[in-house]
Amino acid sequence: MDVLFKIFQDAFFAAVAAIGFASISNPPRGALKYCALIAATGHATRFCLLNYAGVHIVAASLAGALLIGILAVWLAPKIKCPPEAFSYPALLPMIPGMYAYHALQAFILSLSAHGEDEFQHLFYLSESNAVICIFIILAMVIGQMLPILVFKRRSFTSTR
């Protein structure tokens, strides 16, 4: 029960985050509910893989993004808009903000490091966080782009 609650909680907050960030990019009317649905499904998938299947965060993000991409391509013709209108806002809750923050924090701290050891440690922290952050972003974008490229016909005729 606790597991289910955690999954639903993750899906709910991902949906709210997707709606908010989607509203910035002015999607067509009626697209917001699909954004929320896709984001909730994708993020909950990543959450499950990460916490209950022991999958690495990069691979889990790739799986979540792939699901987001497939759902976006499938739903796009229903309201005649590009799949990107759903998939990009739905991806945003997966952006590794804390990794980016830690990378920046350690990078700036390394400026005031006393001695080589402290500098090396801070630089290592900065690099390791930055590498994970970059790979997660790449996995996310490639994951959501693949269905658009594979199902080209459906993707590019959705606005017809």
Binding site: Q9, D10, F13, A14, V16, A17, A18, I19, G20, F21, S23, I24, H43, P93, G97, M98
Partner: peptide, 16 residues
Amino acid sequence: VMLLVVAANASFCRLF
């Protein structure tokens, strides 16, 4: 839009 973004960023915080 701002109200939606406020809710979104607070949700983001929860997700992290």
